[in-house]
Structure formats: structure tokens, C-alpha cells
């Protein structure tokens, strides 16, 4: 296997997805969960731009990447607002505290 820039970017995307997925699985802190989601979003962003370059449709990939940036930012904004609310109501950012919401 030859080490081209495309291969290295692809390996970086897979590693970023792995790191984000791992953080999402093990973390109980709301801030850490949002950080993990952001890392996953960045991996998806690079993957879309790279796919556009590979396919020869750079504009399509970049337009979708722009949508990902906006959606990722809104996820962070709403998630952080929710984290602040959870901290105010329950006194902690542990997602175990949210188990009180179960019916």
C-alpha cells in the first residue's frame, strides 16, 4: 500500500471517528460528551471534503461540509445550554442524574 495524502487523510478520519466514538461511550460528563460529538463532526467534515475531491465533485463535497459545520455548531450550542440547565437543576453534570427523567 502506497502512502498517498489521501490514504493518510483517510486514516486520520478513521482515528478521529474512533476517538470520538470512544469518548461518547465512556464519558458520563455532559461537556465531555459534547466534545466527543464535536470530534465526530470534524471527522465527518474531512470525510465529505475528501469524498468530493476523490469523486471530482469538489463543490458538492464542500457544500455538504458547510452544512455539517452549521449543524455541528447548533448541536454544540443547544447541548451546552442543556448542560448548563442540568447543572443548575441537579447540581452535577453527570448523565446519571438525568435518569430521574425516566417515566
Amino acid at each position: 500500500m502506497t502512502w498517498t495524502p489521501l490514504t493518510l487523510v483517510l486514516i486520520g478520519v478513521i482515528c478521529l471517528l474512533g476517538v470520538g466514538f470512544y469518548g461518547l461511550l465512556i464519558s458520563r460528563n455532559l461537556i465531555k460528551i459534547i466534545v466527543a460529538l464535536q470530534i465526530l463532526g470534524k471527522a465527518a467534515l474531512i470525510a465529505f471534503v475528501m469524498a468530493g475531491n476523490v469523486n471530482g465533485q469538489t463543490g458538492q463535497g464542500q457544500a455538504l461540509a458547510m452544512t455539517i459545520i452549521v449543524a455541528d455548531t447548533i448541536v454544540a450550542v443547544v447541548g451546552l445550554a442543556l448542560a448548563v440547565q442540568v447543572r443548575r437543576r441537579f447540581g452535577t453534570m453527570d448523565i446519571k442524574a438525568l435518569s430521574n427523567l425516566k417515566g
Binding site: 471530482g56 465533485q57 463543490g59 458538492q60 457544500a63
Partner: peptide, 8 residues
């Protein structure tokens, strides 16, 4: 599709 190098 055929590659289209349209600007962003």
C-alpha cells in the same frame, strides 16, 4: 456522475 468541478 461525470465529475463537475463547479465552484462552491
Amino acid at each position: 456522475a461525470a465529475p463537475v468541478a463547479a465552484p462552491l
